[in-house]
Amino acid sequence: MLIDWPTVIFQIINFLILIALLKRFLYGPIIRAMDEREKKIAQRLARAAKAEKEAAKHASRLALDQEEFAKNRVSMQQEARLEIDTWKNESIERLKNEIADQKKDWQKSLEDEQEAFLQKLKISISRQVFQVARKAFTDLADEQLEIRLIDTFLEKIEQELASIEKQKTEHETVHITSGFPLHQTEKDRLQKGLSPFFPRQENFHFQEEAELGFGLRLLAGNHKWEWNLNRYMRDIEDEILKTMGMVK
């Protein structure tokens, strides 16, 4: 008999034990691990799907933004151009005004300067003319002219001294200063002319002072009489300038 029944029973028991052991050590752990991995993969896939969905959403939003930006770009550019143009025109206008103001100021100051310069020039020219004239008179002065000056001086001083009381001057020492050298004849002429006004004076005191120019000065006590060409010319100059309205 090929079938040994006790062995059959043993093998049935062995087989059942093997089922239990393999269930414990093989199928259970392996199935659990596979399920867990499957779950993890499913989770990852779900996460990936979610991320993909979010990315797609993001992408669509970005595309919308981009489209909107492209749509707005033209109008934004136009606005910007308009603003720039306005700014440019305003700036140009402002600059023009500023330049015009500056130009006006400059012109005014230039005119003032010009006027001042012209005035100074006129004064300078007048003075120069009279200086030249003075120099010419001084250089050209000769004896005849000196005598003529002495005569003129005596004429004028006589008029002046006539109005002054004799007592006030007769005791004083008389000093006569000339801008040129006086010859004895000229001194005598002067002394003779002035003696009636200073009767107590025997000798007049004569002195020469080049700075006086072509002129004479008489000093008696506190009184001073002077006539010279420089002064005469300066008086005329002042008169002329006053007439021109250059000197107040």
Binding site: T7, L21, L22, F25, L26, P29, A33, E36
Partner: peptide, 24 residues
């Protein structure tokens, strides 16, 4: 019976060795 036990032992031991540290 002896060889059955041997096979059983090999199978269980092999399974235990592999499944004691499974990776998920």
């Amino acid at each position: 019976i002896l060889f059955t036990w041997l096979v059983m032992g090999l199978l269980v031991l092999g399974s235990w060795l592999v499944t004691r540290n499974l990776s998920t």
